[in-house]
Design a protein around this nucleic acid. Structure first.
Lengths: 226, 226
DNA sequence: CTTCCGGTTTAGCCTAGCCTAATTCACCGT
DNA sequence: ACGGTGAATTAGGCTAGGCTAAACCGGAAG
């Protein structure tokens, strides 16, 4: 019943719902999946008749409870495989997205749970994103915010990336940023909403981050001596 | 270019070639894949025009060098995943076939090689079948024979199973047979080509094996005190 | 209230893979 | 040399999932 394609659609809708509240547009789904809007409309009819989305023409889509559960399971598998690839097989964090995208479609509760146990029930994947439980619930990550909302003077520890596309992660690598990196916000530039920071312990004295970057980095207050 | 379906066809042809020498029949492929002969014929045209098989109507098929290499890579991935599932995640040997059947289709040289390294470059999978190298060659397993060819009085150590379908493996479990089990051949029954054996170290004194079973077990001479 | 424009949907077409039914071939025995 | 017969192939059709082009809303601007 569930195919790779439908899983990808459900996952995309889940992730778009996180940002835009309710009523995900077909074109945003199309953009995220690299498909044409017309194809999305066609698929929405199928997803609706299977009871996985609430959909009415011209009004966007939302996941049903069943649809959300399927999407969550897919995300869970994706993040477990990423954790495995980085933690166990030694891949870099910018190499695993596409592989996990394939592995996530192997649907087996046994496999997923055994993998989870083998990895020691990890809480987050290599990009700092929370891994859903077997029952499809998140351990919500409290107290984290986007770097774009930080004020001058703040010492922020990077704990997550919003966009785990490989090219974004490689960009972070070349800037010297990674999970656990601590930065001090030096200056804000309202003109283009960019930001100058000092990387604590880094080689470069100062680093300039575009809004595209700061809007995709999660941080928490850095504990001085941790 | 390579799809899941074509990989399955190539793998099936490879395994049928092992038995029947040259000219694999379309119906044998159909049977192995659970498809209709007509579907196989259709696929053969596609495989031929992609240069993966030699095929002439009414004359059976053979793999080309390219086709064989693809098939070998698929088998390699399949057996590495089976080894991982049993050795690392703790699955039983009769639970992994279907899962590996799915995982094998994730085509990534990096992933395959990293997995191989993580597992310590295993020589055989949990069913005793040899794992092809990265270059697509077997370490040939010399000196093994089918149990159906053993003579009365021989002490045989089971080192492989020909058919790793889950139900066959479960049957072996219930008989008390597994990889490494040593049996002594007690009697042959030419009528139905069945065989009575004594399982060395087993609880049952005597065990009766059908030809269906003995034709799917590989053995080597058991070393008395090993 | 009307118009316009961009996003959405429908209509129609395509490919991959599979199926069933009908046809064709190859080979064996006479 | 000639049928028969079972295996193999062709013909035609189906579903899933995608695409392009054309038609269609619906909300903002006049």
């Amino acid at each position: 019943m569930l195919t790779e394609s439908t899983e990808n659609y459900l996952k995309a809708i889940l992730q778009l719902e996180a940002d835009k509240a309710d009523g995900v547009s077909t074109s945003s789904i199309a953009e995220r999946l690299g498909a044409q809007p017309a194809s999305v409309t066609g698929m929405m009819h199928k997803l609706k008749e299977r009871g996985w989305v609430k959909y009415e023409r011209y009004k966007g889509v939302d996941l049903t409870e069943t649809g959300r559960r399927h999407a969550m399971e897919t995300v869970r598998r994706h993040r477990l495989w990423e954790t495995f690839l980085v933690g166990t097989l030694g891949f870099a964090w910018d190499e695993v997205h596409d592989l996990a995208e394939q592995l996530e479609h192997v649907r087996s509760t046994d496999l997923t749970d055994q993998l989870d146990a083998f990895l020691g029930h990890p809480q987050t994947d290599p990009h700092g994103d929370p891994i859903p439980n077997a029952d499809g619930t998140f351990r919500t990550s409290v107290g984290r915010a986007l770097l774009s909302d930080a004020q001058v003077g703040i010492c922020a520890k990077i704990v997550g990336v919003g966009d785990s596309q490989d090219d974004f992660l490689r960009h972070l690598n070349s800037l010297g940023l990674g999970l656990g990196t601590v930065v001090e916000v030096k200056e804000l530039f309202p003109f283009d909403r960019s930001m100058a920071v000092h990387i604590v312990g880094g080689v470069e004295a100062r680093c300039h981050l575009s809004s595209r970057v700061t809007q995709n980095l999660w941080w928490v207050e850095a504990v001085p001596d941790a």
